[in-house]
Design a protein around this nucleic acid. Sequence first.
DNA 1: GCAATTTATTGAACATTGTTTTATTTGTCA
DNA 2: TGACAAATAAAACAATGTTCAATAAATTGC
Lengths: 211, 211
Amino acid sequence: MARRNDHSRKQIRELAIQAVLDVVDSDEDATITARSVAKGMGYTVGTLYLVFRNLDDLLLQVNSKLLQHLYGDMNVVAQNSEGPRDTIFELAKCYVSFAEDHPGRWQLLSHRRDNTLGHDAVENEADNIVEDIFVLVQTELTRLAPTRDSKEIAIAARALWSAIHGICIVTASSHLRRRAHYDARLLVHTLVHTYLSGFMFDKIESLAPRS
Amino acid sequence: MARRNDHSRKQIRELAIQAVLDVVDSDEDATITARSVAKGMGYTVGTLYLVFRNLDDLLLQVNSKLLQHLYGDMNVVAQNSEGPRDTIFELAKCYVSFAEDHPGRWQLLSHRRDNTLGHDAVENEADNIVEDIFVLVQTELTRLAPTRDSKEIAIAARALWSAIHGICIVTASSHLRRRAHYDARLLVHTLVHTYLSGFMFDKIESLAPRS
DNA sequence: GCAATTTATTGAACATTGTTTTATTTGTCA
DNA sequence: TGACAAATAAAACAATGTTCAATAAATTGC
């Protein structure tokens, strides 16, 4: 038995999160079970439930951490690129790279999870980072079209980023079922290129859906 | 006990598929279990496994049926709209409507499933319909830009449709976790509008990703 | 019409999960 | 040192997917 006080609760949380990452990194198709995580951290399930409300709680915290990293990377990229247009391309590349380079983690992140915990602190934290990512794009779009209505730009940013997300999802899904698939980077590049062309071209025009 | 030969195997398959739809229609968050499906069809689990290889097999067949319906609807819409541009808008609306009007079915469809069955007939059927949907869009894009390279258009169509898919995914996910969310129809309209502007505006220009 | 056989269907059984509870070990402090 | 508290393990439970032996119904051969 591991001697008690070998790890603080915070350390145990870290151990668990790391164990989850180890599992999905070693095999993107691996299913994460409470017992596999516990074994990975050198504890038993009971300890896991001492520190997390349930498995979803743990996975949510993993996602939160992944999102933090992703957001951090995106911020670096945003800093080091030339203009708003280039920045958006680089941000998109960054997003795709995450999905392609860490398929297990990406699956974790994009996996739909039932909301067993109510509105939770951690959950909100993850959602807030997602929101931050949208804002990052929104900022660059604003630089591209400073005169345009900010609400309109918010919508444009969300549309664009959800779109990029969609391409990653579809590509990952094709990967998963071993189907032929188009290169995600190419698709995303096409999307961003075309979308930005349209964004710049459009004059002030009604964006409301007809009927 | 239900008298044997009350239903043919094909009928039992239909019963099962219908039972699944009933479950997700009655509660989009409901988890589909072998036993709940069996109860819904008036049989027990054993019968289910007489007719399907496993649960995934059943769900895959449900998805195939859903995709057939969706594709049928999209075809009708494509027939009854004015020009290629309008058609694409209508196709997108059709897709969003499916996701919004039948959230349970949409979740079923967009749920990632491990590939427990190998390359299977039903699985290929579903994948083929997805491919057909892409082709539908591709056809309209070709009408919009008849001179453009067909490979390029194929990519553009996949990028566009994956993007629309992504918006539906993100919106549904927000719905699920009861978060504030932007209206999917508005986002999709913005996306299609902007994307088509860019698509029409772009001259023959390199679409290859830099570096 | 009745026994034998086949077969559809069930219900029990199994393994694996998430989760809770109980038992045990270990550290701490009076 | 011994009682208490906390950490950890181990066992227990319920719900799942899945399999399988038992059973009841239909069919067949006579």
